[in-house]
């Protein structure tokens, strides 16, 4: 029993340590980041790396999320002869919830894992120490551009994902349930209020910030050896998923 309590205590302490480290990194990056030079080139290069290179997977995922949801809702609505309400039924679930959350869980986790692996490799090969030894601030040079890029790129990917999900729903509505694409579009858009778009984008911003922060923190706290990079990357995916789901719960509660 005592060993169980000790083990539980160790897990709680390690969790608190992790949250403390993450918070410290967030504070340090917000202290050094917004100073001149802003590192626009580094941010732009990270936007390309994290945002533009994630467009294909985002498009593919969102298209299929829209199609799957339309198939499911169409199946249920067909029993009531209400397939023409497919656009209304799909829109809220996709825009408010499914697109931002699933993009953060998949594309976001990919971005965070990439950052953790890259920074973790730099850590074990002393490249992060080298940045400091050459007189630069590793937080400013390595964390800040990734954090800003992830925070900006994720809502843009969510916006793009919303368009692709709409197209996916339209295709299924038209092909499977004979709902004209124009009608699907009108009912889809009519159902949405400005706050729904705002909710979608705010979730994108906050998920993106979490993704960037967790990816960088995990990379910077990588231990020694190449095996540690693998462990750190795996932990990043788990931590990102858990944090995104928890953040999603609270954001949904706030917006309701």
């Amino acid at each position: 029993m005592r060993r169980v309590i000790e083990r539980f205590g160790a897990i709680v302490l390690s969790g608190l340590d992790w949250v403390g480290g993450l918070t410290s990194l967030a504070l340090r990056s917000s202290a050094v980041g917004p100073r001149r030079p802003f590192g626009v080139d580094d941010i732009a290069s990270q936007m390309v790396e994290q945002g533009v290179r994630s467009l294909p997977i985002t498009s593919f995922m969102s298209l299929f999320i829209g199609m799957i949801l339309a198939v499911q809702f169409g199946w249920a609505l067909a029993d009531f002869g209400a397939t023409m309400a497919l656009g209304d039924a799909s829109s809220l679930a996709l825009v408010r919830e499914l697109v931002p959350t699933l993009i953060a869980l998949t594309v976001g986790a990919k971005m965070a894992a990439g950052m953790a692996a890259e920074l973790g490799s730099m850590k074990v090969t002393e490249q992060i120490d080298a940045v400091a030894a050459l007189g630069a601030d590793p937080i400013k040079k390595l964390v800040w551009p990734r954090l800003v890029a992830a925070t900006l790129a994720t809502p843009l990917l969510v916006a793009w994902g919303n368009i692709m999900a709409l197209i996916g729903g339209m295709l299924i509505g038209d092909w499977v349930y004979a709902v004209p694409a124009g009608y699907f579009y009108e009912t889809y858009v009519d159902e949405l209020a400005p706050i729904d778009y705002i909710q979608s984008l705010v979730k994108g911003v906050i998920f993106g910030y979490l993704v960037g922060l967790i990816g960088c923190y995990q990379g910077f706290s990588t231990k020694f050896g190449t095996e540690a990079v693998g462990v750190s990357t795996m932990e990043t995916v788990v931590a990102t998923s858990i944090c995104v789901i928890i953040a999603d719960f609270y954001l949904t509660m706030i917006f309701l």
Partner: peptide, 16 residues
């Protein structure tokens, strides 16, 4: 200090 004292790392630590 780091402008005056340079460090040559064991593995080089060159930026890949």
């Amino acid at each position: 200090i780091r402008q005056r004292v340079a460090y040559v790392f064991q593995g080089g630590a060159l930026f890949d």
